[in-house]
Structures are given as structure tokens and as C-alpha cells.
Amino acid sequence: MGIISVEKVNNLFWLGRYTQRVYTTLQRYNTGFDEMLDLDVHFFEKYCEALNIPNIYTDYENFIKSYGYNTDNPDSIISNLYRAYDNALVLRDYISSEALAYIHLAQFQLNAAKLSDAPLIELQSVTDNLLAFWGAVDDSIDDAMVRNLIKLGKKTELLDLKLRFRAENEELKRVFGQLDFYLHRVDISYDRVAYYEMALALEKREVDEKTMLESLENLILV
């Protein structure tokens, strides 16, 4: 492939971010659903606060439906999967039909889960297809730049979510290390000040989530 346009760089990066967002939030959604059964019916309030999304949910049942499957809710898992699909669809020539097919399948499965009597069990197929997609990224994409841009997006999103869910410093450092690895394997501009601020805060164990999130948003210039 060799040459990638500005728009495609953007699509690849955000494909990585949205697939990671769907994957991670699906895990949290499953955990939260379980907790809400007998421990904490207000789990979703804390969840919305952590993600900084509006708490529009009337109760936990409404959260399960709307956050999981409502396409009119811009913060829902299904809306994020549609955004991953929007980015993937225009990248067929870069990521291959094989890899793109797993995003299609994840979308089919999430829509099927919406109508199912046992939606949580059905969600496993969505997770499986996202994992298969990432496998296909490694297996079907020859161009290292293309692969690394997706992975850079993926690690950026993972660090974002880890920060929001207040992960331990060591965990944050580990994910930042992964992000750093891909950042230096793609030929794109980044904000060096933001980069060093993040690295320093992690090294000194002085992470302020809000400041870190701001630096992270400014880090990649695509």
C-alpha cells in the first residue's frame, strides 16, 4: 500500500479506538449487569460518571436496554460499534475483506442479541468477533503502518478507559508502554509535550486522571 491519506490515517486510528471501546465497555457491561442483579442496582450511575456520559437511564433495566442496544443513544455500545463499522467500511482496500467481515459479524451479532431472550449470552459472539478482527488485522494486513495505526488507536482508547475506570498506576504504565511502542512505529505527528507530561506523571506515580485524559486527547494529531 505504501501511501496513506490523511483521511485514511484518521479512519484507521478511530477504527482501533472504537473497536477497543466496544470490547472494553462490553466487558464492563457484563460485570455491571451481574453486579446489578444482587449487589448494586446503582452501578450504572457510577459507570456513567466514570465515563463522563450523561446518565439518562431511569433504572438498571433501562440502562441495560438503552446503553447496550439503543442506536439513538450516542453513548451506547451499539452506536460505538456502528462507528467502528463506519470507519472499517471505507478501509476495505487497506484492512482486507477478511478483517472487515468480522466487524460485519459483530454488528449482526449485536443486533441479534438485541432481539434475543438471552442477550448477555449472545454478546459473547460480539466479543469473539472483535477478537477475531484483531487476529485478522495481524494475519491479513501486510502493511505494518496500517496495522500499527489501528493498534495505536486501540491502545489510546484502552488507556483512556483505564484512566476513567481508575486503574492502578502499574496498569496505566503498562498500557502507556504499549501505546508508546506503536506511537514510535507510525510516521505521524504527536504532541511531544503531552507525551512527556504523561510519561513523567506515570513515572512519579502522580497521575491526575483529568490532566492525563486531556494530555491523551491532545497526544495524537490526526
Partner: peptide, 9 residues
Amino acid sequence: YKGYGGNNQ
């Protein structure tokens, strides 16, 4: 074709 970073083809 406008490549990223002015790398046009």
C-alpha cells in the same frame, strides 16, 4: 493522491 505528512503520489 494526498498522502499523510505531504507524502503525495
